[in-house]
Computed example of a mutant assay.
Amino acid sequence: MHETTLAVFAAVAFVGIATPGPTVLLALTNGSRYGLRRAAYGFAGAVASDFVLISAVAIGLGALLAASTFWFSVVKWVGAAYLAYVGARLLMSRGAFELDDEQASGGRQRNRAIFLKSFLTAVTNPKGYLFFSAFLPQFITPSAPLAPQYVALAITFAALDLAIMFGYALLGARAIRLLKRSGARW
C-alpha cells in the first residue's frame, strides 16, 4: 500500500471518527461518569469493534447489508433497540458520578460492562458496516495481496479511533470536574 494512500485514508477516517455519533457520545459519558482511567475500557471496546467491522467488510458482510434491505433493517433495529436500552439505563442512573476507584463497587465487572457497552454500541451500528463497505474499497489495490492492505487500514483506523475516543473521554472528564467545582453539576 502506498504511503500517500494511507495518509489520505487516515485524513478521511479522522473526520469520520471525530464526527459525533453514538460511540463518541458514549466516550464523553464514560469520561464524565467514571473518569479517564475507567473510560479507557470503553475506548478499548470501540477499537475492538473496529476490527470486527473491518473483518466483516473484508469477508463481504458489508456488501450483504448494502444489498439486502431485510438484513440491513435487522441490524438497524437491533442497534436501535440496544441504544434505546443504554439510553434508558443512563436516564435511570440518577446522575451518579464515579470519579474515584474507591467509590466503585465490583471494579472488574464494571470495567467489563463499560467495555461491552462501547463494543456493542459500535458493532451494532449498521452505519459502520455501510461506511466501511463503501469506504475501504477506495483504498484497496485489487491486484495486490488483500490481507496486508486490510490489516494496515484496520490498524490505522483503530489507532485514530483510540486517540479520538481518548480525547472525547478526556473532554468529558474535564468538563465534569469543572461543573462539580462550580456547583453547576445539575
Rank of each mutant, 00 (worst) to 15 (best):
H2D: 15
T5M: 05
T5P: 11
L6C: 04
L6K: 01
L6F: 02
A7E: 05
F9E: 03
F9S: 02
A10D: 10
A10G: 06
A11Y: 08
V12T: 11
A13C: 05
F14W: 06
F14D: 14
V15I: 09
V15P: 08
G16W: 04
I17K: 00
I17H: 09
A18R: 04
T19R: 05
G21M: 13
L25F: 14
L26I: 10
L26N: 08
A27L: 06
L28I: 13
T29S: 15
N30Y: 11
G31F: 02
Y34A: 10
L36T: 04
R37H: 14
R38N: 08
S49G: 14
D50G: 04
F51K: 06
F51N: 05
V52F: 05
L53E: 05
L53F: 11
I54W: 06
S55C: 03
S55D: 13
G60A: 03
G60K: 00
G60D: 01
L61D: 08
G62C: 01
A63N: 07
A67H: 06
S68N: 08
S73P: 13
V74R: 10
V75C: 09
K76V: 07
W77A: 10
W77F: 09
V78S: 03
V78W: 04
A80M: 07
A81G: 12
A81W: 06
L83A: 06
V86I: 15
G87I: 09
L90K: 12
M92D: 12
S93Q: 07
S93C: 12
R94K: 09
G95S: 09
A96Y: 06
A96K: 14
F97P: 15
E98L: 15
E102L: 09
G106E: 13
G106M: 03
R108F: 02
Q109R: 13
R110F: 03
R110Y: 11
R110K: 10
N111F: 11
R112M: 13
A113Q: 06
A113F: 13
A122V: 12
A122D: 13
A122N: 11
V123H: 02
T124P: 06
P126S: 02
K127G: 07
G128I: 01
L130F: 11
L130T: 05
L130G: 01
L130A: 03
F132T: 01
S133A: 15
Q138N: 15
F139E: 01
I140S: 00
P145N: 05
A147R: 00
A147E: 01
I155H: 04
T156G: 04
F157G: 10
F157Y: 10
A158H: 04
A159T: 12
A159M: 12
L160E: 15
A163E: 14
A163F: 09
M165D: 10
M165I: 13
M165C: 10
G167I: 12
G167N: 05
Y168D: 05
Y168N: 08
A169D: 07
L170Q: 14
L171E: 07
G172Y: 03
G172L: 09
G172I: 05
A173Y: 01
A173W: 13
A173M: 08
I176L: 03
K180I: 15
R181A: 15
R181K: 10
R181C: 14
A184G: 14
R185Y: 13
R185M: 14
